[in-house]
Design a binder for these strands. Structure first.
Length: 557
RNA sequence: GCGCCUGUAGCUCAGUUGGAUAGAGCAACUGCCUUCUAAGCAGUGGGUCAGGGGUUCAAAUCCCUUCAGGCGCGCCA
């Protein structure tokens, strides 16, 4: 199905084209035509400001231009009811009732495929997000990134991309060392409480839990070993344990990755050395003060960056370039990185890095998700993994639930700062808009249950006469669900899944309003079936959008 | 000091890429359950779009500037 917006744009284009051909306009080429949907229904289903935009250049009044355009509009398919010129020079387009009914028919025919568009054309896209260090449980800020990344990936899938969701595990380096040592000390403290803890160690209770676990299994086996001998085990065990916890948390948050990519595997496969070699061959590396530098300034970075320290150790940056080279080598035509906004300073460096390798900068999209400020009763709570003072994603899930948490995170643009007041969220949890939306879905399901009980099976679209759908409330719903594919397309292009949450609230409002004022199941069989079809269409779209957001669509509540 | 993000109703946030009278949820107030689920519906009040300049037919939206908040500016990860 060709999107409606495109069809109308085409019709307007033809009208303007005729004017140009006839020399009735000064401009020579077709101007871009932007169709907007007026907030006020009385101003049409679509409107364009075209005539106003052209006015100054044409040296004619907007209304005159609008009239000329309107006179040349040809609606061959007969989808338009009327065209009006209003206000300072808007051209307002009204569509026929029959058009909306034909869309409803199409929705039912397409079923789950409705809302899937093809701007991606099957191109493969990688979405890497979260990639939290395996040094502690996920906290609430991670939850926001996870919800966003997961939903964005789903959205891109719906828009026709072949999407790979990926988590990059930083399982190499000093922090792993510190992590393992933290568990090791906690373990030793179980034999001698006087042993001092590490100054910069991970202080959270989860480390103690892991130490207890090791103790329960191994008793005193590791006390007798030297630290060098014992450490590899503690590092490995702690890392695995924490990673499993992260996996479990994400699973319960309805976030599933296609691939968990290990940083260590890049080293093992020689890709870090490989990328350094390639950079050297391309002439981007140089030595200074015993360290190896990449000349990122050549591609707009503030300063050049060290990739190999004077100690011979690689910086974090080196494997990161290797990882991104790996991504591009796998053939992704778009690579999306989603980071917490505290990493924003890293973007120019990485961009420069991939350009040094010759990859086009535009294929990398970096989305920064603003941090979550955690409040309790309006007072700020500081969060840091090492000091162990944070609220975990697990706690949030237990307290407010997966659906409410995801919806909460997704009703915001990623770049808006979010104040998350736990007490407030708990208090508002029952009134949370997410239940309002879910309730709409449950209500419709309930109607179908009722109909079934009264001997009215769900009608088949081929058998139903939809002309009974003529209430304004019905038209409103049909228009809303007809706009769904456009919404998917636009939000996917702009990488903005949050728009779906607002759309869902609008659709739910329309449904609740309708439900309250009209009955679906009545004595009139013809009308009942038509309305059931409409309900089916609304339900279909609710379900589809909720699925993209990773939120459940309950059958009953 | 420099850079990035943000500032919209009492609170939390949208705002169709510059368009018509700036919206929603929560909170406050008023009504509505013998009928498919009241986690619902209908209504009321609430705004110097942080402040000030500018650009134009038109600015919450673009430019400049001031103020306020958040985050960055490592041979850390």
């Amino acid at each position: 199905m060709l999107l409606l917006r495109k069809r109308l744009t085409e019709i307007l284009n033809q009208a303007v084209g005729k004017l140009i051909a006839a020399g009735d306009l000064k401009l020579k080429t077709l101007p871009p035509i932007i169709l907007e949907t007026p907030k006020d229904e009385t101003k049409g289903d679509y409107a364009t400001t075209l005539a106003m935009t052209l006015a100054s250049m044409e040296k004619a009044s907007p209304r005159t231009i609008a009239e000329r355009i309107v006179n040349h509009i040809e609606d061959r398919e007969g989808i338009m009811d009327k065209v009006e010129i209003a206000g300072p020079g808007y051209i307002n387009l009204f569509l026929k009732q029959g058009y909306w009914i034909s869309v409803l028919r199409e929705i039912l025919t397409m079923g789950d495929r409705y809302g899937q568009v093809d701007i991606g054309k099957g191109k493969s896209v990688q979405v890497e997000f979260l990639s939290a260090n395996p040094t502690g449980p996920l906290h609430i800020g991670h939850g926001r990134v996870a919800a966003f990344g997961d939903s964005l990936a789903n959205l891109l899938k719906a828009a026709g991309y072949d999407v790979q969701k990926e988590y990059y595990i930083n399982d190499v380096g000093n922090q792993m060392e510190t992590l393992g040592r933290s568990t090791y000390i906690r373990y030793k403290q179980m034999f001698d409480p006087d042993i001092p803890f590490l100054q910069d160690g991970y202080k959270g209770d989860y480390i103690k839990d892991i130490a207890r676990e090791i103790f329960a299994d191994a008793k005193d086996r590791y006390v007798h070993l030297s630290e060098e001998e014992a450490l590899p085990f503690f590092i490995q065990y702690t890392k695995e344990n924490i990673l499993n916890g992260i996996r479990k948390d994400l699973e319960d948050f309805n976030v599933v990755f296609d691939l968990w990519f290990s940083e260590k595997s890049l080293y093992d496969a020689g890709e870090v050395e490989g990328v350094l070699k390639e950079l050297r061959e391309k002439g981007h590396l140089y030595e200074r003060e015993g360290a190896l530098w990449l000349n990122t300034t050549q591609f707009g970075d503030d300063k050049d960056r060290v990739v190999v320290k004077s100690t011979g150790q690689k910086t974090y940056f080196a494997p990161d370039i290797a990882y991104h080279r790996n991504k591009f080598k796998r053939g992704f035509c778009m690579v999306v990185d989603i980071w917490g906004a505290d990493h924003h300073g890293y973007e120019p460096r990485l961009r420069a890095g991939i350009q040094c390798l010759g990859y086009p900068e535009k294929d990398l999209k970096v989305i920064l998700v603003q941090l979550v400020s955690l409040l309790r009763e309006g007072k700020p709570v500081s969060m840091s993994t090492r000091s162990a003072e944070f609220v975990t994603l697990r706690e949030v899930l237990d307290e407010v639930g997966k659906d409410a948490a995801r919806f909460m995170f997704l009703t915001r643009r990623p770049d808006s700062h979010l104040d998350f007041d736990l007490e407030l969220v708990k208090r508002e949890s029952a009134e949370n808009p997410v239940y309002y939306v879910e309730y709409a879905h449950a209500r419709i399901t309930s109607i179908f249950r009722q109909a079934e009980e009264r001997g009215i099976p769900a009608p088949r679209i081929e058998d139903v006469d939809l002309s009974a759908l003529n209430l304004p409330e019905e038209t409103r719903m049909m228009k809303l669900i007809a706009a769904y594919p456009e919404l998917i397309e636009a939000s996917a292009l702009d990488l903005e899944p949050h728009r779906l949450t607002f759309y869902l609230q609008d659709l739910a409002t329309a449904l609740h309003n309708y439900y309250f004022h009209h009955r679906v199941i009545t004595e009139d069989r013809r009308m009942t079936e038509a309305r059931l079809i409409l309900m089916q269409g609304v339900k279909q779209v609710l379900k589809s959008a909720l699925a993209i957001l990773g939120i459940s669509a309950p059958e009953r509540m």
